[in-house]
């Protein structure tokens, strides 16, 4: 590659090698990978942003940031949690410590957590959607006194599909209102059964002074956003993280359109006032 072209190539284009330094199996099909850069770090990722992760020779997929580096970690680590659903995520799921994968990014809009300072923070997640909102809770707890009530409502298919159980316990102990519900209970489950939007009604927060952060399957986000707006949270203060097919992350491939939005650039985090009329149109 000649210098003129090399000078144009950035972390947005060529996957930089990152090594898996820790792999934690969260559930049967979901792992959290800690990644450390090999040659050079990418710019810092903010909660809500995503990376394009490459399993060399297999393919590339968008995966959100799922954890903030601990304050003492100076080196830029990346944390991603992914569910094995197809060829690429299966290959990444199988990547043990020492494996080198490719990373591009950071891409997309952020949850803009600091803008919720002075407000109650209501985080609602369904399934793997807990991964992209985990850095919100971490960021809020790192500066706890800047925020009001902190609510985290989590839905999972079964108790065995629940992610980050240690975190949930720790956060509950730190004063976060943690509510967990499952679609199908198992032996020994004595928590809620049902869909997660149903937990919104009984959570304690001041609707007029709250910011909602919602991530999960699209119908779950629509019902949750409605539950939040029904309680009086303005739609413009409810943020959802939307998913569409993404091939590049950088605004070049055209796949992630949702009407006027290019979700890799104008999303994935979009406020619900903007998202609702678009999600209302079938097959948009």
């Amino acid at each position: 590659m000649s210098t003129s072209l090399a000078s144009r190539v950035t972390g947005a284009e060529l996957p930089l090698p990152y090594r898996v330094i820790a792999r934690h199996a969260d559930t049967d099909d979901t792992v959290t990978l800690e990644l450390a850069y090999e040659t050079a770090p990418l710019p810092a990722f903010a909660p809500g942003q995503f990376a394009m992760l490459t399993a060399y020779g297999i393919g590339e997929v968008p995966i959100s940031l799922s954890g903030l580096p601990a304050p003492h970690e100076t080196a830029r680590r990346l944390t991603h949690t992914l569910r094995a659903v197809g060829a690429v995520t299966r290959a990444l799921h199988a990547a043990g410590p020492g494996t080198v994968i490719g990373v591009r990014g950071p891409f997309g809009t952020t949850w803009d957590v600091p803008s919720a300072a002075g407000h109650d923070v209501v985080v609602v997640a369904g399934g793997i959607g807990l991964a992209p909102v985990r850095p919100i809770v971490q960021a809020v707890l790192a500066e706890r006194d800047r925020y009001g009530e902190v609510v985290l409502l989590v839905g999972a298919r079964t108790p065995a599909d629940l992610l980050y159980r240690d975190d949930l316990d720790r956060w509950a102990a730190a004063g976060v209102q943690v509510g967990v519900t499952v679609d199908r209970p198992a032996e020994g489950w004595n928590g809620h059964v049902g869909v997660v939007p149903a937990l919104v009604a009984s959570a304690r927060f001041r609707p007029g002074r709250s910011v909602g952060f919602v991530c999960g399957p699209e119908v779950m986000m629509r019902f949750t956003a409605r539950a939040l707006t029904d309680r009086g949270v303005p739609a413009s203060r409810v943020r959802v993280s939307l998913e569409r097919n993404m091939r590049c992350g950088a605004g070049w491939c055209g796949h992630c359109q949702l009407g006027p939005l290019l979700l890799c650039r104008d999303g994935p985090v979009v406020d619900y006032a903007r998202a609702e009329p678009l999600l209302d149109v079938r097959e948009l």
Partner: peptide, 20 residues
């Protein structure tokens, strides 16, 4: 072709960009 990558002995990938 956007890029090609070759595995070096220590397992990392050396990536080169497209042809000029």
């Amino acid at each position: 072709r956007r890029w090609s990558a070759d595995r070096s002995p220590d397992g990392t990938m050396v990536v080169s960009g497209p042809d000029e």
